[in-house]
Design a protein around this nucleic acid. Structure first.
Length: 257
DNA sequence: ATGGTAGAGTGTCTA
């Protein structure tokens, strides 16, 4: 079974690339972030024609998450227990969606960006992560489960192209890194790094991709039962190249049958 | 400190 996660930065503007990506890599389950579309804006007939079912949590022009699966899509759940809301109740931010796909519980997560350490969004980010950690702790002992997506955290300085430049920025502050480490302390395993070193995100401007000046912020955290099934991982850097690319590359994980 | 690019949608906001 092959699982992938991708911050697609608008599903509507990227649908051709998404379909080609699924076929090129024979992907079974794809978690998407920053879909930037409501459900009524997404017929997605092409994906269905390819044999995939889709669950979306749509929202506003910035956020939105989805799970795309051709191995079943059961028990879809939007948001996690205790997830703190933010902003306009009429346009809630959907940052988490779960579905059980081929027996694996997959959470597609779009962790709040934080904007700046002195911004209220930064407080919201840490609060959101704390509540996710609480919700996720009981899932460690359960059936196979993955927390995948755009974590908007660089866990180490190696995950930043220029740590000095990011000194007073979000993604690298000690509280954010501690929040990420908390999941590992609880027993989740980040299963991509050992197989797939390198960045997963490159800003659009200043030719950051061409110069490989990026960040590693997209991760797959597996509970113990799932971690034991991981055989490899891969960052599809080619998908970040050329016209019409998302600013994130997809991250893939292979699971033993 | 600012600005560079891209995507949502026409005003800026977000990343």
């Amino acid at each position: 079974m092959r699982l992938a996660t991708w911050n697609v930065n608008s599903l509507r503007s990227r649908i051709d690339r998404v379909e080609a990506f699924l076929q090129r890599h024979d992907v079974d389950v794809l978690a998407l972030q920053e879909t930037k579309a409501r459900e009524d804006q997404l017929p997605l007939m092409g994906l269905q024609a390819l044999g995939y079912d889709v669950a979306v949590a749509g929202v506003n022009q910035w956020n939105g998450v989805a799970v795309v699966s051709r191995v079943g899509l059961d028990d879809v759940e939007v948001g996690f227990p205790g997830m703190p809301p933010y902003g306009d109740p009429a346009a809630p931010e959907a940052r988490a969606i779960a579905a059980t796909c081929g027996g694996v519980r997959v959470w597609s997560l779009y962790v709040p960006n934080g904007r700046k350490p002195d911004d209220p969004h930064y407080v919201y980010k840490l609060d959101w992560l704390a509540h996710l950690r609480e919700a996720a702790r009981p899932w460690l002992e359960g059936p196979e489960l993955a927390l995948v997506g755009d974590w908007n955290i660089c866990p180490t300085d190696d995950d930043v192209f220029d740590p000095a430049q990011f000194k007073n920025s979000t993604h690298v502050t000690p509280p954010e890194r501690a929040a990420f480490q908390g999941f590992l302390d609880d027993g989740y395993a980040e299963v991509t790094r050992e197989h797939a070193p390198g960045y997963t995100y490159w800003d659009y401007y200043r030719q950051r991709f061409e110069r490989d000046r990026g960040l590693k912020i997209d991760f797959v955290l597996a509970n113990p039962r799932l971690a034991g099934r991981v055989t490899g991982a891969f960052i599809d850097r080619d998908e970040r190249a050329g016209q019409g690319a998302s600013d994130h590359a997809p991250v893939l994980v292979d699971l033993a049958d």
